[in-house]
Amino acid sequence: MIQLLVIAKAPVPGRVKTRLCPPCTPRTAAVIAAAALADTLAAAGAVPAVRRVLVLDGDHPAPPGWACVPQRGDGLGQRLAHAFADTALPGVPSLLIGMDTPQVTPALLEAAGHMLGENRSVIGPADDGGWWALGLTDPADAAALSPVVMSTPETGRDTRAALRGRGADPRTLARLRDVDVAADALAVAAACPPGSRFAEAVARHLTDAAAGV
């Protein structure tokens, strides 16, 4: 069995999903971000795990039964590396996801966990060249993430190369689209399962016409 980590930023107006503005306002972008986080936590909460941890930048309540640890580090690469190190459980692989793929399902996460149980590392590629999930059997391998420049079209490629340099060549998970701009939010909302808070928030606060698509 695995440990599940969700790395997230508290949904505070002006600090999250700023690339949705415009057409969103900082307030509505934060509402959409909060819905994305809620859906992500719900999906992760439905998957069997040794422990679930919210790795948080800011102040936001963790679901009942979840641990919460603060993010630390100067850049996202360092924050990711510390997330694995600060939550390490001896002998338990960790699967980390972000809050930008609210269409993720428990079935996808369970499949990722099974693959991680058979491999030293796994990675879920994102359509923009980054990644939405990273699983490591050995938390020490996360040190390879510190120098990787995140949020670029080369992030996925560079993450793979960094892990290969440690002998931890990752197996590939399903590809997902993450939410950066308004067009992403609309596409991801359409892919969300029924009852999605994210899809409801996008429908309420973001329209095709406003997004210019």
Rank of each mutant, 00 (worst) to 15 (best):
P63W: 12
P93A: 11
T207Q: 08
E154S: 12
G195P: 05
Q78K: 12
P26A: 12
G91V: 00
A43Y: 06
L89Y: 12
G77V: 02
Q3M: 04
R19C: 04
V16R: 04
V31Y: 03
R175S: 11
V213D: 01
A211K: 00
P48Q: 10
T155S: 09
P102S: 05
L4F: 11
D138Q: 13
R51W: 06
A46L: 13
A30L: 00
L76K: 02
A36K: 00
W131Q: 06
V188P: 07
A162V: 05
A111D: 14
V47F: 08
H82P: 00
S121L: 02
E200H: 11
E200L: 10
A144C: 07
G167F: 05
G167W: 02
H82T: 07
P48M: 11
P194T: 14
E110G: 00
V69Q: 12
L109R: 10
L56K: 10
P147V: 00
I7T: 14
V12Y: 03
A162S: 07
V181P: 02
G113Y: 10
L89Q: 15
T101R: 08
G58D: 14
V12E: 15
D169E: 15
A210W: 09
G135I: 09
L108D: 14
A161P: 11
R204Y: 04
T40Y: 02
A38P: 01
L5D: 06
P23M: 10
T159F: 01
R79Y: 09
Q103D: 14
A88G: 11
G135A: 05
T18Y: 03
G165D: 04
P194D: 12
M1S: 11
A162C: 06
D208H: 15
P61T: 14
A62E: 13
L116E: 04
V12D: 09
R52P: 03
S146H: 03
A126L: 08
K17H: 08
D57I: 00
R177T: 13
T87K: 08
A161S: 12
T25K: 06
W132T: 06
D128P: 02
P125T: 06
G98E: 07
V16N: 10
G45Q: 05
P70R: 15
P70I: 03
A42L: 09
A62G: 11
T28L: 00
G77L: 12
G135D: 05
P48C: 03
K17Y: 14
D208R: 15
A168S: 13
V31N: 01
A190W: 10
M99R: 05
L95I: 01
V188M: 07
G124T: 10
R15S: 01
T207M: 05
V55A: 08
A81N: 09
L37E: 04
P139E: 06
D39M: 03
L37H: 07
A203L: 15
D86Y: 05
S151T: 04
T87P: 04
A8S: 10
G75M: 03
L37Q: 04
I97M: 07
V181E: 12
T40M: 03
D178F: 13
L173D: 02
P26R: 01
C68E: 15
P26M: 11
A33N: 10
F84K: 08
D208N: 13
E154W: 15
R19I: 02
D59M: 06
A38M: 06
D158N: 12
P102W: 04
A42I: 00
G14V: 02
Q3C: 02
C68G: 00
T159I: 03
